[in-house]
Amino acid sequence: MSFNTPAELKYAKTHEWLRVEGDEAVVGITDYAQHALGDVVYLELPEVGATFAAGAVFGVIESVKASSDLYAPVDMEIVGIHDALIDDQEPINADPYGNGWMLRIKPTGSAEHLLDAAAYEQIVEDASDD
């Protein structure tokens, strides 16, 4: 099975993506992650203004089968959330890099630990071999 992994994005090992836009960035979960979860039926996102250290849990995503944490890819402050996803999570499955975006953030720390598309694809490939 192959997954969409756009080259222009940065990736966290925990399956979030980050797209830098000026001094802000947009965050969501990867195509691999949405596929592994199955149909998302519930989403919990933080409040605007909340701050998180890289690796901290910023939200919860649930499918019928399981519940998973969402992790901050970098040190960040929330400047906007995608409200519409709270009532309708379908875009997370249908368009994870587009209308499935979750957060608009202001990075407050380094993004150097994030992976490029090739490195993230390698992680996904290793995980799929299990």
């Binding site: 199955g38 149909d39 039926v41 499918s63 019928v64 089968k65």
Partner: peptide, 11 residues
């Protein structure tokens, strides 16, 4: 098998 096409469509 835990799912084929997905838990929702199968359900």
């Amino acid at each position: 098998p835990v799912q084929y096409s997905g838990v929702m469509p199968e359900h």
